[in-house]
Design a protein around this nucleic acid. Structure first.
Lengths: 223, 223
DNA sequence: ACTTGTTTGAAATGTACGTTTGAATCACTG
DNA sequence: CAGTGATTCAAACGTACATTTCAAACAAGT
C-alpha cells in the first residue's frame, strides 16, 4: 500500500539531491533510480518524463514557498508608508528557512535547485515561475518600486536580474564557495549565513543611485 | 597552406558562437563541425578533445584580456592613495570593449562564454582562471580591499562572488534579458549598456556596510 | 617526380542516454 | 479466491554523442 507512494517520494528525494549537486542535465535517470533503489522505468511511469520529474521536484518546494511569500507581501503592501528595501528583501528569509521544516536541508536544496534551474535549462524555469506565480512576483516588484521611487522601471528590471544572478549563482556554486571559505578563512558558512550576507549586498546594489558619474574616472588623460 | 590554419580558426569561430548561445554541454562537436564546414574528426585532430577545444576558445580571449587588465591594475596600484571602488571596477570596461577589435561582437561573445563557463562546467573554469591568471586576480582583490578598508577579508570574498554571480548570470542570460527589455520597455540594450548599468550596482553592493541590522526586522515575536 | 609528413574524409566503435515494452507481481474487491 | 487494475521489473529500442581508425588527399623538400 505504501509501496507506490513510497516510490514517488523515493524518486523525488533522490532526484532533488542529485539535481542540486550536479545539475539537471548532468544527472541521469539511471543515477536517480539507482540511488532511490527503484526500477528505471518507474520515473517514466510515475512522472511521464524527465522534464516532468524536474518540474515535480521544483513544484514540491514552490507550492509551499510561493503562497507563504504571497501573504508576506500582502502584509507589507497593506502598510501605509513605503517599506525600506532591506525589509522587503528580508521577507524572503523566514519562508525560505521554513523549508527546513518540510525537509532536512530543505532551504539549501531548494536554493541550489533554483540556481540549477536558471542556469541549466535556459529560460524554462523563468517561464515556469512567471506562468504559475506571476501574480506573486508582481507584488514583490511593486514593493521594491515603492521602496526605490528614484529608480526608473527599466533600471529596476535590470537590477532585479542582477540580484537574481547573485542569488542563483551563489546557490548553484554554494558547495564550492563554502569549501573555499572554510579553507581560506576557517569559516564555516551555512545557508542561513549566506542569506544574511546577501541581504545588505542586494539592498545596496538594487537601491544604488542611477547615474553614477564616477563610472568614468575623472582622469584627464583619457582620449 | 592556409587550409590547416583555416580549419582551426573555422572550428574556433563556429564553436565560440554555438557555445555562447547554447552552453558547452548542449553543443555537440557535430553541430560545431557542421557549422564550421569541416570534418567531424578535425576537432579531435587539432585540439585533442572537446574539453581542450573549450579551453582554446576561452584562451583566445583570456590571453588578450588578462594581460591588459594586469597592466591596468598596476597603474591603479601605483597610486599613492586608495582608489574609489567604482574606478577599480571601471578598469574592466576598456579592456573588455577592446575585445570587439579582435572579433566582431567579441565582448559580448566572451562575456557569454564566461557565463557559460562558470555555470555549465562547475568548477573547471574557476580553477582554470585561478591557475593561469591568479596573479592578476590577486591584484584586483588587493585594489578592492584598499578601496573598502571597512570590509573583512571573508566578507569581501563573498561579495566578490555575489558580484561575479551578477555578471555571469546576466551574460549567460543576456539574449533573453535583452529580449524582455526590448519587449517591455522598448529599450534596446547592447553589451556596453549592460556593463555600464552593472558598475553602479556592483559598486554599491560590494561596498555596502557590513552589519545591516535592518536585515532582521525588529519583530519581537520571533521565537 | 618521388618521398615524407601533415591534414582531411567517411565510416565505424563503444558508451550513455531517455523512453518503451510486455510479462510478472502486487494489492485490493466482489 | 478468482479477478482486476495498478505497479514493478528486466530487457530492449532508437538516438546521439565523443572519439578512433585508416585510407585518401595534400603540401613541401630534394
Amino acid at each position: 500500500m505504501n509501496s507506490k507512494i513510497n516510490t514517488q517520494q523515493k524518486i523525488l528525494d533522490a532526484a532533488q539531491n542529485l539535481f542540486a549537486e550536479a545539475g539537471f542535465n548532468d544527472t541521469s535517470l539511471r543515477q536517480i533510480t539507482t540511488k532511490a533503489e527503484v526500477n528505471l522505468a518507474s520515473v517514466n511511469y510515475h512522472f511521464g518524463s524527465k522534464k516532468e520529474l524536474i518540474q515535480a521536484v521544483l513544484q514540491r518546494y514552490l507550492q509551499i514557498l510561493m503562497p507563504r511569500l504571497d501573504q508576506e507581501f500582502d502584509v507589507l503592501l497593506a502598510k501605509t508608508k513605503p517599506n525600506h528595501l532591506p525589509d522587503v528583501l528580508a521577507v524572503f528569509v523566514k519562508p525560505l528557512l521554513e523549508l527546513n521544516n518540510i525537509q532536512r536541508k530543505g532551504t539549501r536544496t531548494f536554493l541550489q535547485l533554483l540556481g540549477r534551474g536558471y542556469t541549466d535549462v535556459q529560460g524554462h524555469l523563468r517561464w515556469f515561475i512567471n506562468h504559475h506565480y506571476g501574480r506573486t512576483l508582481d507584488k514583490f516588484v511593486l514593493l521594491v518600486q515603492q521602496s526605490c521611487p528614484h529608480l526608473p522601471q527599466s533600471e529596476l528590471f535590470w537590477r532585479l536580474h542582477f540580484a537574481l544572478g547573485s542569488i542563483v549563482f551563489t546557490m548553484a556554486s554554494n558547495d564550492a564557495l563554502a569549501e573555499i571559505a572554510l579553507a581560506d578563512f576557517d569559516e564555516a558558512v551555512d545557508i542561513e549565513g549566506v542569506i544574511h550576507r546577501l541581504i545588505p549586498y542586494l539592498s545596496a546594489g538594487i537601491a544604488a543611485p542611477v547615474f553614477n558619474q564616477t563610472t568614468v574616472t575623472p582622469t584627464r588623460t583619457v582620449a
